Amino acid sequence: MTIEIVIGLPHLNEGPILARARAMVQPALISANALSRWSKARGWPEWRGWRLGQLANAQGLASLDLDSAGFVAMKRYGGYAWSIDDYFRLASAFPFRRIASLDYCTEHEIAGDREEVLDRISRTIRANRDCRDRARDLGLADRFMPVLQGRMPSDYERCAEGLWWSMQPGAVVGVGSMCRREIAGPNGLVAVVAHLDRILPAGIRLHIFGAKGAALPWLKAFGERVASIDSQAYGIAARRDAHRRRVSKTDAFVADHLQRWTRLQFLRLREPARPMPRFTPPSDPVPALDRWESAVAAARAEMRALIESGDLDHNELTAGWIEQWAADILQTR
């Protein structure tokens, strides 16, 4: 089975990019942020709902997947501007092929330390469960795609364990925080996929969000485990090319890059599968902690467990609350 190349679309405006995607008969993906309405009437951006009318323009595409825009939401707005109910109003407005869960990305510019990575894994587990429940309520369970998060390969295993209910043969599971990740290395894209390939049951397939096209010959080595990748890398290439040539980056210009990029990915898929690179698996660092740091770590661990169990909302982890929780722990010791 061939790895599917999914085109990440910057918008659903009628024009050259959308027309080219239709003509190429390639599956596509759109970010929730690309369909958002924003207002600056008060001097700062405020989310005002969805541009649902644009979804009519998606008719004629081979298929369309929906992504929650986790990285953009964290990077630009400091968190999701939309709730799970809001997100599923969008998800139910069009027959999307796959509806990705909300998740909490772990890139270095978002999660600055190890504790924050672990916090975001727990929040991802809870967000997945809440999204699954909403998908079931709306009759969208067959289109819901769970999403795994992590920094190290073992993190993704931890996340998969928390989402055991989704690990059923035939499921397609998203793998997040991939687009800025190196291909090789102990925490590289290939290492994460190889670890998931070892620990996941047979029949579960992976969608790699934002995978570099250069990784395709390595991903081929995993047989049918990798279902698909998506990328909007052609947009970055178009911006660089336009700057180099001192021309305008029109949608027609971007559409040409989209077609060239897609052809290149198919050429990469024809290359022989490359063997797994050798590296030493990373270990999870365990720093020495003083009494206060130990209490903070214990508070975080307890709060993560409550988030995963549903006793705390996945957005209720704040620095002030963690410190108060840690102080309470110290008083009881």
Results as ranks from 00 to 15, higher is better:
321 W>F: 15
284 D>W: 13
179 C>N: 08
81 A>R: 15
4 E>C: 11
66 L>S: 07
28 A>T: 04
205 R>H: 12
174 G>F: 11
48 R>C: 14
309 S>L: 04
147 V>I: 10
129 R>A: 13
148 L>W: 06
28 A>Q: 07
171 A>H: 09
158 R>Y: 12
234 Y>R: 05
58 A>Q: 02
222 F>W: 07
317 L>G: 06
328 D>Y: 09
18 L>Q: 12
298 A>R: 15
171 A>L: 10
241 D>Q: 15
255 A>L: 03
92 S>L: 06
237 A>C: 09
134 R>K: 15
303 M>Q: 12
254 V>G: 02
96 F>Y: 01
316 E>R: 14
67 D>W: 09
178 M>H: 06
37 R>E: 08
64 L>W: 04
182 E>F: 10
164 W>H: 14
12 L>W: 05
227 A>Q: 11
195 H>D: 06
215 A>D: 02
55 L>K: 01
1 M>T: 10
159 C>H: 05
175 V>K: 11
111 A>H: 08
7 I>W: 09
236 I>M: 07
273 A>S: 14
110 I>G: 04
22 R>S: 06
201 P>R: 07
144 F>H: 04
158 R>A: 13
181 R>S: 04
46 E>F: 12
128 N>M: 04
204 I>P: 05
326 A>Q: 11
296 V>P: 02
42 R>S: 13
209 F>V: 00
106 T>M: 06
6 V>A: 06
9 L>I: 02
235 G>P: 05
301 A>N: 14
133 D>K: 15
130 D>R: 13
170 G>Q: 10
120 R>V: 03
224 E>V: 04
128 N>W: 11
97 R>C: 02
71 F>Y: 14
311 D>M: 11
81 A>N: 06
190 V>S: 07
107 E>T: 04
248 S>L: 15
74 M>H: 13
272 P>A: 04
11 H>Q: 14
61 L>E: 03
181 R>Y: 02
18 L>H: 11
72 V>Y: 11
47 W>M: 08
298 A>H: 14
10 P>W: 01
246 R>N: 14
123 R>M: 11
326 A>W: 01
272 P>S: 03
145 M>L: 12
139 G>H: 12
279 F>A: 03
148 L>R: 08
28 A>M: 12
170 G>S: 05
215 A>N: 09
298 A>W: 03
147 V>E: 03
